[in-house]
């Protein structure tokens, strides 16, 4: 028997890995990939709780989160391409126009 808390722990670890990647990576594409990692961990969390509660609400929510993640990836990568076209770089430490 697999306990619910095991799934929640895996999900928590994965979310923290995503947070770490988002805060530390230099490349914007890798930052977006870390966001996908975090969204996946949340999806796992919802699916696990939904399964153990014998209810479909969580799994329906996972379906919608996947749709929103697809939209987010499309917009985010569009912004990355535009940024690269203007600045010839996608490194976060070289984009400092808003720094006072």
């Amino acid at each position: 028997m697999v306990h619910l808390s095991w799934y929640l722990t895996v999900s928590a670890i994965l979310f923290c890995i995503g947070v770490f990647g988002f805060l530390t990576r230099r490349n914007i594409i890798m930052m977006l990939l870390s966001i996908e990692l975090m969204l996946n961990s949340v999806n796992l969390n919802l699916a696990a709780i939904s399964h153990y509660m014998e209810d479909l609400r969580g799994q329906v929510l996972v379906f919608f989160i996947i749709a929103v993640a697809a939209a987010e990836a499309a917009i985010g990568l569009g912004i990355v391409v535009t940024l690269f076209r203007h600045r010839k770089s996608i490194h976060t430490d070289q984009i400092v126009s808003l720094k006072g």
């Binding site: 929640l8 722990t9 928590a12 670890i13 979310f15 923290c16 890995i17 947070v19 770490f20 990647g21 805060l23 530390t24 990576r25 230099r26 490349n27 890798m30 976060t92 430490d93």
Partner: peptide
């Protein structure tokens, strides 16, 4: 070049560990 931002590695590490403890 390094894949991480300067002085960012340990900052991110500490924040991730703190969040993990909160989740647990």
């Amino acid at each position: 070049i390094s894949p991480f931002i300067e002085k960012g590695y340990w900052m991110g590490f500490v924040i991730a560990i703190a969040m993990f403890i909160t989740f647990i």
